[in-house]
Design a protein around this nucleic acid. Structure first.
Lengths: 245, 245
DNA sequence: TAATAAATATGTACTGAATACACATTATTT
DNA sequence: AAATAATGTGTATTCAGTACATATTTATTA
């Protein structure tokens, strides 16, 4: 570009769009919660005509002065008021035609939050929780993003103690099992599930009982303090090295 | 931005950088090969003063009219002349200060190629293969990118038949085992390795023998045709669903 | 040509996790 | 006080992961 022209704003815009930094970068958040025995995602009504009636994930453009990984935290803070959330980067989507209003490459994150801590009035913000199972179509390529994040969540949840971010501090084994069933989309055997979780050593026995149930109360547990890391957990994946000898 | 000013080129640039699409996006390729019993990576001498003497990964800015996932294929084709390569997206790096010349967010891919198919004259291009084990420092954040990709490769290699992309069409079990040892960085028991690979069902017995070895020749195998997918392999990860019942 | 060296090829016993499955216990409700 | 409904626990089986030793085949060398 070697022009020394006098340009009007619109023209400046056009040129900078097309020939300079002509690709915008955004983040999209797949915000999971667990409510009424189902895994749900926070969605917002799409504000674009092309997708009127459809919902989309929460996202925003990355700002020039913020780290990529900070952007989803900002989006979450703005939309839900929460800031101590579990977040994990999953994949970056960048097909040419994925966004109707221009070239936008987006990095997808998933987030796990306890809905009980979520005091936002949803209606005011046009934000809604939707059971993952019911979601058939979303704006843009957001359905694919959702599917990719759900798949990653399913992979991670058996290996790392992250599902606990979806539960309140204290929970029963039944709650935990129902959560896993909701995430994985399958039914689990109670005895084997307990054995498996016990083997992981993730649980801390609180010596307390459920109080609000209308049947025999179960024991309450919390995530063992050793494993309490709410932020991004680095994968060390020992199993792979010990797989063969 | 609501200016209708007369601007000189430099100013136009400045404004468009800072307030419009002010973040560039690139891809970086961690190109692995296997040679002389070691896992190696293709590097190029950094062309920036700040990093003179250091090597960096191969990368380029994503073009406005190409898919994000196409960019690393283009880079590979340009640099190595190869186009039927295994490529996988790993992670996107976007710290504010990661690139000295400005704000650049980069998506990292790793690639597996058979060095025998690689006819490029390396010296002319300042491209060099470096054993992964010897690499201590790279330009930018490329050492972290390399480590992240290597970790991902190690995770994938036990689960999916992708390591074969690093070998010639026909190979012996010894070669395969040495490759796995190079990737994982550990020694493996020969009998257990064979059992494990046999269990995966990845191998096709060619009923041929090694010819160029100065000892008892081993049988030659190829990747079983059923598993022959050189491009990105979609993860289906059944194990997770069958993990509990 | 016979003996040696070096690599290939293979099998078994042990341990531990994954799975399938049944009964006793406890609190609530009627 | 009896019935209900959920919690809590154990055992047998299968299969993969691991540790480990000997026979076989080819090339080399004496």
């Amino acid at each position: 570009m070697d022009n020394n022209l006098k340009l009007k704003t619109a023209e400046i815009e056009k040129i900078s769009h097309l020939e300079y930094f002509n690709i915008a970068i955004s983040v999209d958040c797949v915000i999971f919660c667990y409510n009424e025995k189902s895994l749900q995602v926070l969605l917002i009504k799409s504000d674009l005509e092309e997708y009127s009636g459809l919902y989309s994930l929460l996202g925003d453009l990355v700002k020039p002065d913020e780290d990529l990984d900070s952007a989803p935290y900002r989006v979450l803070k703005q939309r839900t008021g929460m800031d101590d959330v579990y977040l994990e980067q999953v994949h970056t989507f960048g097909s040419i035609g994925r966004h109707v209003s221009g070239r936008v490459i987006t990095t997808a994150y998933y987030s796990l939050i306890d809905i009980k801590h979520h005091k936002l009035k949803l209606d005011e913000n046009e934000l809604h929780w939707h059971p993952v199972k019911n979601i058939k179509k979303l704006a843009f390529d957001h359905k694919i993003i959702l599917d990719t994040c759900l798949q990653r969540l399913r992979e991670q949840v058996m290996e790392f103690p992250i599902a606990f971010n979806l539960l309140p501090e204290k929970f029963s084994l039944r709650q935990l099992q129902e959560l896993y069933e909701a995430i994985l989309g399958i039914e689990l055997d109670r005895r084997n599930f307990r054995k498996k979780i016990a083997l992981k050593g993730w649980l801390h026995d609180l010596d307390e009982m459920e109080t609000d149930v209308s049947h025999r109360p179960g024991k309450l547990y919390s995530l063992d303090p050793v494993h309490k890391k709410r932020k991004v957990i680095k994968k060390s994946k020992q199993p792979l090295v010990t797989i063969l000898t």
